[in-house]
C-alpha cells in the first residue's frame, strides 16, 4: 500500500496558482517569443498522465508542491543575474555568453560504485513525464537570495534507477568544461572542470532536485542547462550546473571551491547564519528586489526537512 506523507513544503491542490495567473504569465512569456517551445515540448511528451498538470511554456509538469509562498524573483532577474564562472566572473557574463554552449546533444557519464554505469542522455536520466515544480529559496554564499520556481525531478528518483552499491557513500558531480564554448575557462579562476559533491543521504533527500527548467520552461544556458542540481538548504554554489558526470564514490570527494579556498568553503556548505564566511557575515542576506537585508534562516528555512541529516555533527567544524 502506498501511503503518501505530505511534507510541510508540499501544498495541496487548492494552493495551486490560480489559472488566471498562469495565463497572465504565459502571455508574458509569449511576448518573449518562447511560446513555440510549449508546443514542441508538449508533442514530445504527450503521455503525461497526472491529473493536476500545468502546461508551462516549454515543459509539461505537475504541481509538485511549493517550498515557499514567498514572492518569486522575476524571471529576468533569475536569468539575468548569475554566477557561472565558466562564462566569466561578472554577474551579467553568464546571460551574455552562455548562449555559446551547445546543450544538444548532451551526455552524462555515470561512473563508480553503481550497478548501471554508462553514458546517458538527459532524457534517460530525467523522466520528463514526471516533472514537478518546486518553488525554492536560493541563498548565494555572497549573501544575496532569490525565490525560484524550478522544474525537475527529485534526484533520488534518478539515483534509485542507477542503483548505487553499498559502497557508494558520496556522489560527485561535474560541470561541462568546453573551452571553445565557455570563455571563462581561459582563466584558471577555479580548478576546472567545476566539481561538487553530496553525501548519499543528502542526495537522496526528497528536497534535492535535478532541475531541467524554471518558470515552466527549459533551463536557459546561464542557469545550468540542460540539467542542474538544486539543493535548497545549501549555498548556491553546491547546486552544480550543466552536469556531464555523476560519480558514486566511497570517500568524500573534492569540490571546486574546497580546492580553491578550503578555509572558506566547506564540503557541506549548509546555509548557516551562525557560521560566517571568513570575509563576510552570513547572518543576513539581501533578497533580490528588496532594500533592507533579511535574516538568513538555518538551513535556508528547510531545517525541518534536513536538520536530521546532521544530528550530532559540529556544524561549525563541518561548515
Amino acid at each position: 500500500m502506498l501511503i503518501k506523507n505530505r511534507k510541510s513544503w508540499e501544498l495541496s491542490g487548492r494552493d495551486a496558482t490560480p489559472q488566471a495567473l498562469y495565463q497572465d504569465r504565459r502571455t508574458i512569456l509569449k511576448g518573449m517569443g518562447l511560446a513555440g517551445l510549449a508546443g514542441i515540448a508538449a508533442s514530445l511528451h504527450p503521455l503525461a498522465r497526472r491529473a493536476a498538470l500545468a502546461v508551462g511554456s516549454g515543459l509539461t509538469y505537475a504541481d509538485g508542491g511549493h517550498g515557499t509562498d514567498e514572492e518569486k524573483t522575476p524571471y529576468r532577474d533569475v536569468t539575468g543575474y548569475n554566477n557561472y564562472y565558466e562564462f566569466g566572473t561578472g554577474k551579467l557574463d553568464p546571460a551574455r555568453y552562455a548562449g555559446a554552449m551547445t546543450t544538444e546533444p548532451w551526455s552524462v557519464k555515470v561512473e563508480g560504485e553503481v550497478e548501471n554505469p554508462g553514458t546517458y542522455a538527459v532524457e534517460d536520466l530525467v523522466d520528463f513525464s514526471k516533472l514537478i515544480e518546486r518553488v525554492y529559496r536560493l541563498r548565494c554564499v555572497e549573501a544575496w537570495s532569490m525565490v525560484i520556481p524550478w522544474i525537475g525531478v527529485p534526484l533520488k528518483d534518478i539515483i534509485t534507477r542507477l542503483g548505487p552499491t553499498s559502497r557508494a557513500k558520496f556522489v560527485q558531480f561535474e560541470t561541462l568544461a568546453r573551452p571553445s564554448e565557455m570563455r571563462g575557462l581561459s582563466r584558471r579562476v577555479l580548478d576546472w572542470p567545476y566539481k561538487e559533491g553530496l553525501r548519499i543521504d543528502e542526495a537522496m533527500n526528497p528536497l534535492t532536485l535535478m532541475a531541467v527548467g524554471l518558470y515552466g520552461e527549459v533551463l536557459p544556458n546561464q542557469n545550468g542547462a540542460p540539467m542542474r542540481l538544486v539543493v535548497p538548504w545549501k549555498y548556491g554554489f553546491k547546486s552544480i550546473k550543466s552536469i556531464v558526470a555523476i560519480r558514486f564514490v566511497e570517500k568524500q570527494p573534492t569540490t571546486a571551491w574546497l580546492r580553491s579556498a578550503p578555509r572558506e568553503y566547506g564540503f557541506y556548505s549548509n546555509v548557516n547564519p551562525d557560521v560566517d564566511h571568513p570575509r563576510w557575515s552570513q547572518r543576513r542576506e539581501r533578497r533580490i528586489g528588496e532594500f533592507l537585508k533579511r535574516k538568513t534562516l538555518m538551513f535556508n528555512g528547510y531545517a525541518e526537512e534536513v536538520a536530521h541529516l546532521y544530528a550530532g555533527m559540529d556544524l561549525k567544524k563541518n561548515f
Partner: peptide, 9 residues
C-alpha cells in the same frame, strides 16, 4: 585582492 572569490586576474 582580498575581496574577490577564486583566482581572478
Amino acid at each position: 585582492l582580498m575581496m574577490v572569490k577564486g583566482n581572478q586576474l
